[in-house]
Amino acid sequence: MTMEAQIKKGVLEMCVLFTIREKETYGYDVMRTMRRFFPEVNESTFYAILRRLHADGSALTTQSGESNGPPRKYYRITEAGLATLQKNIEGWRRVKSAVEEMGIR
């Protein structure tokens, strides 16, 4: 991912991937977690990112039947997703160190 794309889109995607890296997480919980850190961003933005990650093979979903209410979709990171996350984090570090080198902290 180029540095420019990294800045514009990659940060939120990186964070979403990070939240599902260890265990299967219900989509709504991912959205709630992300919202805690980015309160000005709609929850639906994170839902859209989750769907994209699923579409491009970075995340798998499993459905659990709820006794009352619609089934819940749990997201889990894939090998490809882990590789993407790793790349995103490296890109983010480059951006961060460049910004800090300028004197912005």
Binding site: Y28, S44, T45, E66, G69, P70, R72, K73
Partner: peptide, 27 residues
Amino acid sequence: ILRDYEGFFAAGASEGKTDAEICADLG
């Protein structure tokens, strides 16, 4: 997508949120 959003409403309701609050969070 709509099934997912139905789920979000159910999950929000189980946290004690009203429909209006859930809608505001979803956009």
